[in-house]
């Protein structure tokens, strides 16, 4: 067991957990932040993507103790008050989801992409390349790409 302390969506949290606990388990089971999903559990699907110290990572492929001391942002941390984050709003507007299971990871990946590359540099090819680690089994990706294009413009 180890004491794990981190900032999650702006709040400091501290728990005593098993060293083998994954970050995604910590978020979902200890903090009840169930917006972060477990899709494949084999590091491929990206449904569990969160931001750790400002960078998109797969929370199923990192131990909670590894993230101790870090700043974590999950899908629950994007909206301000009752207002959706521009990327969330863009997914809603552009029908960027069907079943919605992959959506939290898609949006966290998209926000990270815009932060890294800049809204002005996002062409369709760049967006598609950067969705390499996020799998959607419903949409065929077209509307996800459109959502990210729109979300990026709204974030600028």
């Amino acid at each position: 067991m180890s004491k794990v302390s981190m900032t999650v969506n702006g709040k400091t949290v501290e728990r005593e957990v098993e060293d083998r606990m994954l970050l995604v388990e910590f978020l979902r089971e200890e903090l009840n932040l169930t917006g972060t999903h477990v899709g494949c559990d084999t590091s491929q699907c990206g449904a569990c993507v969160v931001h750790v110290d400002g960078k998109a990572v797969k929370s199923c492929t990192q131990l909670a103790v590894q993230a101790s001391g870090c700043e974590v942002v999950t899908i629950e941390g994007l909206a301000t008050g009752g207002d959706l984050h521009p990327m969330q709003a863009a997914f809603k507007e552009n029908h960027g989801l069907q079943c919605g299971f992959c959506t939290p990871g898609m949006i966290m990946t998209a926000v990270d992409l815009v932060n890294r590359v800049g809204a002005g540099n996002l062409d369709e090819k760049t967006i598609r390349e950067n969705l390499e680690g996020n799998i959607c089994r419903c949409t065929g990706y077209h509307n996800i790409v459109r959502s990210i294009e729109a979300g990026a413009k709204a974030m600028a």
Binding site: G46, A56, V57, K58, Q62, T109, D112, E132, G133
Partner: peptide
Amino acid sequence: IGDPAVRHM
């Protein structure tokens, strides 16, 4: 290598 999230780690 891998994907953006993997490359961050």
